[in-house]
Amino acid sequence: MRTLLQRIVITVFVVAVATFFITPLLWFIFAPFNPQVSLAVTIPQSPSLANFAEVLGNSLAMRGLLQNSVIIGVGAMVGTSLVAALAAYGLSRGSIPGRSLLIYVLILFSSVVTGTASMVPIFKLIFDLGLINTHTGVILVMIGGLLPSAIFIMQDFVDSVPRSYEEAAMVAGASPLQIFRDVTFPSMRPGVMVVGIWALVNAWGAFLIPFILLRSPELLPASVTFYTFYDPESGMPQIRMVAAYAVLYTLPVILLYLLINWRYGFRFFGGIKQ
């Protein structure tokens, strides 16, 4: 009796949760294929790919998606995971006092400093470095903001890699950098993977930083070129194109997630454990 009640409660809860998560996305399932879109969910009378064709014909938006977002995303991914891996290794294997406190302070910094108030000093800094209107500038700022959380996630992975191999390699006379490259780094691959994907997803979706640091239309990533489908005079979306472009823009991260999930299982491995 109790298990039946329990089952009913759980089923109702799960159905409610599934509904909550899927309904805001329903519109995207039909709208892109509908030549006459409104904001209501309607099953297209005559489904077509015309909206996609029109979006594909917009060279600015497509360059944003296929080139600029990829450059920024991959740049942030490689940079963040590499720097975080080095730092996490240094923290894990060294004897730096108060390291957990240090990381919390950094996270605190990053959550506040990557906010809107820091955009002006960051703009000035990037300008002084001569990196305004370059992908490098955007990537560096992204890495700076993502790094504390990345180190936080990464250090648990490094902690879980056994030290015996490193000690053996040390006895054999390998240099610390060699040990890191050939012994530790390969065994912390899952962590690098998780951090890398996390950084990629963040950089892929980021709007404010590229919006403020980039100028030339041909350098803008998809998060900003998204607004080319808004009317410039006043900011009203041209919803047919927005619908199709949103799908194209989102698909890569969803596919990436499905791939990772299928290949590795997407979860916090040892991460965030205290």
Partner: peptide, 19 residues
């Protein structure tokens, strides 16, 4: 270990501490 931390510290100094 500080050497390993250096790249991260540079980023943190430039993009978090300075702002």
């Amino acid at each position: 270990s500080l050497l390993f931390l250096t790249p991260a510290l540079v980023f943190v100094a430039l993009f978090l501490v300075y702002p």
